[in-house]
């Protein structure tokens, strides 16, 4: 075995001598942050889309401001701003409700910020998907006497999902990649920060960044498969498009 290969294998090995296990756990952390931020984003998106479609005028304006802001300001700037200012804001908010201060740890801050950004994009995806539901279906639901929440759960959700799925799949890919930005703030041992730290100690920048790039690529390709399957699931019972 050539010397450089042996060195590379030791560096990437599992256990206390190598960074294999650290990178693996970093990848799991990346997926964890991304998943939490993604679902937070979906929650925000679902609520904001509802607000944008059915809310009062002032709410629509506020939500438009939110989506415009997120789509125009770089994620890194928002991340730094909200990471440091977020704690203050949360505590001011809680203080308004008469609750004591909480400590927002790095993980919560990162998830909160990425979710906030995701929320703006999912708002648009979900809003467009709801608008794509044939009008007759909603009228039929109303004709049956369904109330708002029931209709949202039984009709709007399942009917809009096939339209939203491609956009939502794309957002998942974006959040897994955006989670790398968290490493600039530091504090959470996700894949990029682990790689940065390992590269700084070992000076093996090329090898480690290449390996990490391929780990991200694997996550992306694997996610694509899952989302393709999910999309098929949401389209069950629909007529096949050519």
């Amino acid at each position: 075995m050539p010397d450089w290969l042996a060195k590379a294998l030791t560096l990437l090995s599992w256990g206390p001598a190598g960074y294999g296990d650290e990178l693996f756990h970093g990848a799991l952390r990346t997926i964890e942050i991304s998943a939490l931020a993604y679902f937070l984003g979906l929650t925000i998106g679902a609520l904001a889309a509802t607000g944008k479609l059915y809310g009062p005028n002032w709410l629509k304006k506020l939500l438009n401001g939110y989506t415009t802001l997120v789509r125009a300001v770089p994620e890194l700037v928002l991340l730094l701003l909200l990471y440091y200012a977020g704690t203050d804001m949360v505590n001011t908010l809680l203080g308004g409700f008469g609750k004591g201060p909480v400590e927002v740890n790095g993980m919560a801050a990162a998830v909160g910020v990425l979710g906030f950004v995701q929320g703006a994009y999912s708002t648009e995806v979900i809003r467009a998907a709801i608008l794509a539901i044939p009008h007759g279906q909603l009228e039929a639901a109303r004709a049956f006497g369904m109330g708002g929440p029931l209709m949202a759960r039984r009709i709007i959700m399942p009917a809009m999902l096939p339209f939203a799925m491609p956009g939502l799949a794309n957002l998942w890919l974006i959040v897994t990649k955006d989670s790398a930005l968290v490493s600039v703030v530091g504090g959470i041992a996700e894949l990029s920060l682990v790689t940065k730290q390992a590269a700084g100690v070992t000076k093996q920048y090329l090898l480690l960044y290449l390996v990490t790039a391929f780990i991200y690529l694997t996550i992306t390709l694997f996610s694509n498969r899952i989302f393709n399957w999910l999309e098929r699931m949401t389209r069950r019972g629909q007529r096949k498009l050519v």
């Binding site: 939490l36 979906l42 929650t43 400590e103 759960r153």
Partner: peptide, 23 residues
Amino acid sequence: LTRRFVMAAAGAAAMVMAAGAAQ
């Protein structure tokens, strides 16, 4: 699927809130 979707979203939000509690 829709129900799981809603529950997962609510769970994620709850975890984010709880994450700030440790002292």
